[in-house]
């Protein structure tokens, strides 16, 4: 079957690709657009490693048909920093030792960003709910939750 064209913005840059009709957005971002920050962990919606923001809301890119991204605004961890200045979440993750192997980190950051964009002062429970679809097998949830709270307004250093 012929490949099909799809256009979207990725971290504010326009992207146009030809994708396999059945391919998912994760593969399109990684091997098509060359953004390797979203990760493959399960392909079934269990782990959250592939979480990206579509029009500001967290979605699982492995369960999103690439074609369905047409015209949408996509954000990934690769676009989180503004130039050389890191996002408050990134700084908080660094300072709070909130990553071990780092494989869940891009998905965690996107889930956390979606939360903070909507709710700049979340409670601990809201943070836990926001990352409840993101697994960390190095069992680093406590420092991750702490780092997200540290990144919230008024608490970042």
């Amino acid at each position: 079957m012929p490949k099909i064209p799809v256009r979207f913005t990725l971290n504010e840059a326009e992207v146009g690709l030809f994708v396999e009709p059945q391919s998912n957005l994760l593969e399109a971002l990684r091997r098509g657009a060359g953004d390797l920050s979203p990760k493959y962990g399960c392909g079934q919606g269990t782990c959250g490693a592939c979480t990206v923001l579509i029009d500001g809301e967290p979605h699982l890119s492995c369960l999103t048909l690439a074609e369905a991204a047409e015209g949408r605004r996509i954000e990934t961890t690769a676009g989180l920093a503004q130039g050389s200045s890191l996002h408050a979440l990134q700084t908080a993750f660094i300072e709070g030792f909130a990553a071990q192997c780092g494989y869940c980190t891009p998905g965690m950051l996107m889930a956390a960003k979606a939360l903070l964009d909507r709710n700049p002062r979340p409670s601990r429970e809201e943070v836990i709910d926001a990352i409840s679809g993101n697994l960390c097998r190095c069992t680093g949830y406590e420092p991750i939750v702490d780092a997200i709270l540290a990144a919230t307004e008024g608490r970042a250093a």
Partner: peptide, 24 residues
């Protein structure tokens, strides 16, 4: 029938066995 993708895309990621056509 593909709507949100949480079932059909999952099946497709795992080979789409038994699926001939997807209505999106």
């Amino acid at each position: 029938v593909l709507a949100g993708g949480t079932l059909v895309m999952r099946a497709l990621n795992y080979g789409g066995h038994g699926i001939g056509r997807i209505l999106r």
